[in-house]
Design a protein around this nucleic acid. Structure first.
Length: 596
RNA sequence: GGACCCGUGGUGUAGUGGCCAAACAUGCGUCCCUGUCAAGGACGAGAUCGCCGGUUCGAAUCCGGUCGGGUCCGCCA
């Protein structure tokens, strides 16, 4: 390799030495005489100066340069003339006086600028992803992703975990997300499925005596996309043997991600130790199972005080078995105009609430409802909320579910409007003690909330027969800044408990045998107690990189329609290929177009 | 499956019924220029305003449809 160092590494200590750099033309500044070339590689920029009197041949080459040409430059590192240093780049003290310049490859004019951080249509960025990834922001994100994965691997190794790879061609997941299927040529009519996660393999690793397993695992789910959801994504999948207390897994995650945040970013880890919030409390206090803990704005239950008033909206809601809950926004009485309040009202209405009762407390209280309350009733309500002059109070009277979720969304919206959620804070936390069951809204039947191999809390086992909805699971999530980062659980390793849960889920013995037979058999050959978790790498990196969309931290992502606009995937295939796989493609019926 | 936002030279924007056979910046081309760092200066080329249809004397602008991109709901054990 002719290159003697990276562009961004040239420093004053190299002055007087001759070096060879290779990279891309970031920008050219042609003065007619002097020409400056900023040469870029992934490490940064170095200024190359070409003087026509010193090196006429080099000057002739430099005059033909355009953005993103690939260059090899040989020259002497010199100190820049006094007053012409550039403190904004690491190499700004020096420049390379070129003695030789070879164009290794020219470039067509670019579809969009690399050197400027301008907003570019995502379609174009994805079509020319290889150009997009050259941009400093993307290069930074790629590097951060690398460092994150490297940190994780080093940490997991230090804790005695083995990295073990599991099959990509696996079998379908019962009950889960939609699977991506791979047709089998050797077995007509049969299919492999890409794994939604290596869940069963990692549990089998525990039976196999691996003791501590991890994998930087690619996972596949054929569901609709979101800003934080891609059809293929990457998880740190991990599992530990001889753990029966969630705390064993949580403590490890806490140390890993606290250290990772502090090592790879300048962000502040808000909690040490991280809070363990029971699911029930998260729903009550924050209206969400993934609360953003960077700010307070907790939801308060004022059903007692509000239900005792003469105000029919409050009284009626409580009498109908509902609740009155609200948020006190300290000092915000004057922060919202009537229009602003209307927007908040619209927000809770969109979450199913019938309305928003509000009061801006002060010498002249503005309110939608205090006129219906006696003075004593008002005082009792403010006391329940801890509210005083200068505070804004926002109340929802509705069913428990609607009050929680609408106030949860309101809480997030308030924080955004009041700029309470700093990206410089990482509010890592655990949500624990999820319910084992939830009721399927469509069928009314019991279904599992996490997954069917999750261990219930020992104290709740008796409730399985009497009140299954009250049974808590040894399931836990990692949340950070209002985003779900990981989900995990302690698994069942006892056949009697597993069978009982399957029965409560209404699974027939045939179905159990078909879907879970292989893993249940394995559990009969000495399965140790075990548990694990699976943090999403893409989401973690996007938080560290201050990116709203995980596409920005995935090198080659899919668009919202799950297509790769650069490679053109998915594509039709030749009929011969289908025939070989014993499958035929059926086009969906054309949508009838309405006459225009 | 549904709701909403966006689509104007290569790129990013302005223009919301006649002032627009479309403006600005940047990029591109030609020329001038020896200390710039988003170099500067001069000149030039480049857009049937995503597409189809409608309303109107007149449409980038209003309406309907369609295609493409994005955000959200459903969905994601």
């Amino acid at each position: 390799m002719k290159r003697s160092m990276m562009c961004g590494e040239v420093r004053a200590l190299h002055i007087g030495t001759s070096i060879t750099l290779q990279g891309w033309v970031h920008t050219v500044r042609d003065h007619g005489g002097l020409i400056f070339v900023d040469l870029r590689d992934r490490s940064g920029l170095a200024q190359v100066a070409v003087n026509p009197t010193d090196a006429p041949a080099v000057h002739a080459v430099a005059a033909t340069l355009r953005d993103e040409f690939v260059l090899e430059v040989e020259g002497v590192v010199t100190r820049r003339p006094e007053g012409s240093e550039n403190p904004r780049i690491g190499t700004g003290e020096v420049e390379i006086r070129a003695t030789r310049m070879d164009v290794l490859n020219p470039s067509l004019p670019l579809p969009f600028p690399v050197a400027e951080e301008t907003q570019v249509d995502e379609r174009l960025r994805m079509q020319y992803r290889y150009v997009d990834l050259r941009r400093p922001r993307m290069a930074r994100n790629l590097q951060l992703r690398h460092r994150t994965i490297k940190y994780i691997r080093d940490y997991m190794d230090s804790q005695g975990f083995w990295e073990i790879d599991t099959p990509i061609m696996a079998n379908p997941t019962p009950e889960g997300a939609r699977d991506y299927l791979v047709p089998s040529r050797l077995h007509p009519g049969m299919f492999y499925a890409l794994p939604q996660s290596p869940q069963q393999f990692k549990q089998l690793c525990m039976v196999a005596g691996v003791d501590r397993y991890f994998q930087i695992a690619r996972c596949f789910r054929d569901e609709d996309l979101r800003a934080d959801r891609q059809p293929e994504f990457t998880q740190l999948d991990l599992e530990m043997s001889f753990v029966s207390d969630p705390e064993d897994v949580l403590a490890l995650c806490e140390e890993l991600f606290t250290g990772l945040t502090q090592t790879l970013s300048t962000k502040q880890v808000k909690f040490n130790p991280w809070p363990r919030i029971r699911w029930q409390d998260a729903m009550d206090r924050f209206g969400s199972d993934k609360p953003d803990l960077r700010y307070d704005l907790e939801i308060v239950d004022v059903s007692a005080a509000a239900g005792a008033t003469g105000f029919q909206v409050f009284k009626g809601a409580v009498e109908a078995g509902g609740v009155v809950r609200g948020i006190r926004v300290p000092g915000a009485a004057d922060r919202f105009t009537r229009k602003g309040i209307d927007e908040l009202t619209e927000l809770v209405r969109n979450s199913g609430a019938k309305g928003l009762a509000w009061a801006a407390l002060g010498t002249e209280t503005r309110s939608s409802f205090v006129k219906f309350l006696a003075e004593g009733e008002q005082a009792a309500l403010w006391a329940a909320l801890g509210a005083g002059p200068g505070d804004l109070v926002l109340l929802v009277a509705d069913s428990l579910d609607v009050a929680r979720t609408s106030l949860g969304r309101l809480r997030q919206d308030l924080a955004r409007r009041l700029d309470l959620a700093s990206s410089e804070i990482m509010a890592w936390a655990f949500v624990v003690e999820f319910p084992w069951f939830e009721k399927d809204e469509e069928t009314g039947r019991l279904t599992f909330m996490h997954h069917p191999f999750t261990m219930p809390y020992d104290d709740d086992l008796a409730l399985l027969d009497t009140d299954p909805l009250q049974v808590r699971a040894k399931a836990y999530d990692i949340v950070c800044n209002g985003k779900e980062i990981a989900s995990g659980s302690i698994r069942i390793h006892r056949a009697d408990i597993q069978e009982k849960l399957f029965r409560l889920l209404g699974y027939s013995p045939e179905r159990i045998q078909t879907n879970f037979g292989h893993i249940l058999r394995a559990f009969q050959y000495g399965a140790p107690p075990h548990g694990g978790i699976a943090p999403g790498i893409d989401r973690i990196v996007s938080l560290l990189a201050d990116e709203e969309n995980i596409r920005e931290v995935i090198p080659f992502p899919k668009n919202q329609s799950a297509q790769d606009l650069m490679m053109g995937a998915p594509t039709p295939v030749a009929p011969e290929q289908l025939k070989e796989l014993h499958i035929s493609a059926v086009q969906p019926p054309a949508t009838a177009s309405t006459p225009g």
